[in-house]
Simulated scan of single mutants.
Amino acid sequence: MSLGRRHIALEGVYNIRDLGGYATAQGTQTAWRRFLRADSPHALSEDGQARLQAEGLATVIDLRTGAEIAQTPNPFAKRAGVQYVHRPLFTELAPGTLAATADGSCPLLGFYQGALDDRHEALSDIMTLIAGADEGAVMFHCTAGKDRTGLVAALLLGLAEVSPEDIVADYALTEGLITELVAGFLEMSRQKGGDVVAYARLLAAPAATMRDTLAHLEARYGSVPRYLAQIGVAPGDITALSDRLHDSVPAR
Results as ranks from 00 to 15, higher is better:
Leu93Glu: 13
Leu93Ser: 06
Ala94Arg: 12
Gly96Thr: 03
Gly96Trp: 08
Thr97Asp: 15
Ala99Arg: 14
Ala99Ser: 15
Ala99Glu: 15
Ala99Gly: 15
Ala100Met: 11
Thr101His: 07
Ala102His: 08
Asp103Thr: 00
Cys106Lys: 07
Cys106Pro: 09
Pro107Lys: 11
Pro107Leu: 02
Leu108Asp: 00
Gly110His: 06
Phe111Gln: 11
Tyr112Pro: 05
Gln113His: 07
Gly114His: 08
Asp117Phe: 08
Asp117Trp: 08
Arg119Glu: 15
His120Pro: 15
Glu121Cys: 11
Ala122Arg: 14
Ser124Pro: 13
Asp125Gly: 14
Ile126Gly: 02
Ile126Ala: 04
Ile126Asp: 02
Met127Trp: 06
Met127Arg: 04
Thr128Trp: 09
Leu129His: 13
Ile130Arg: 01
Ile130Glu: 02
Gly132Cys: 03
Gly132Trp: 02
Ala133Arg: 01
Ala133Pro: 00
Asp134Val: 01
Ala137Met: 02
Ala137Phe: 00
Ala137Thr: 15
Val138Cys: 05
Phe140Gln: 06
Phe140Trp: 07
Phe140Cys: 02
His141Glu: 00
His141Asn: 03
His141Arg: 02
Cys142Trp: 04
Thr143Asp: 07
Thr143Met: 14
Gly145Val: 04
Gly145Ile: 05
Lys146Tyr: 12
Arg148His: 12
Arg148Glu: 08
Arg148Gln: 12
Gly150Ser: 09
Gly150Asp: 07
Leu151Arg: 05
Ala153Asp: 09
Ala154Asp: 10
Leu155Trp: 08
Gly158Trp: 12
Gly158Cys: 11
Gly158Phe: 10
Ala160Val: 07
Ala160Ser: 12
Ala160Gln: 14
Glu161Tyr: 10
Val162Tyr: 13
Ser163Pro: 08
Glu165Leu: 14
Glu165Ala: 15
Asp166Trp: 04
Asp166Val: 01
Val168Gly: 01
Asp170Thr: 07
Leu173Arg: 04
Leu173Phe: 00
Leu173Cys: 04
Thr174His: 06
Glu175Ser: 11
Gly176Asp: 01
Leu177Ile: 09
Ile178Asn: 08
Thr179Pro: 03
Glu180Cys: 00
Glu180Thr: 10
Val182Phe: 07
Ala183Phe: 01
Gly184Leu: 04
Phe185Thr: 05
Ser189Gln: 12
Ser189Lys: 10
Arg190Asn: 00
Gly194Asp: 11
Gly194Val: 08
Val197Ile: 06
Val197Trp: 00
Tyr199Leu: 14
Arg201Phe: 05
Leu202Trp: 06
Ala204Met: 12
Ala205His: 01
Pro206His: 06
Ala207Ile: 00
Ala208Ile: 09
Thr209Gln: 06
Thr209Phe: 05
Arg211Gln: 12
Arg211Trp: 02
Thr213Val: 02
Thr213Gly: 03
Thr213Glu: 04
Thr213Trp: 03
Leu214His: 05
Leu214Thr: 09
His216Leu: 05
Leu217Arg: 06
Ala219His: 04
Arg220Phe: 07
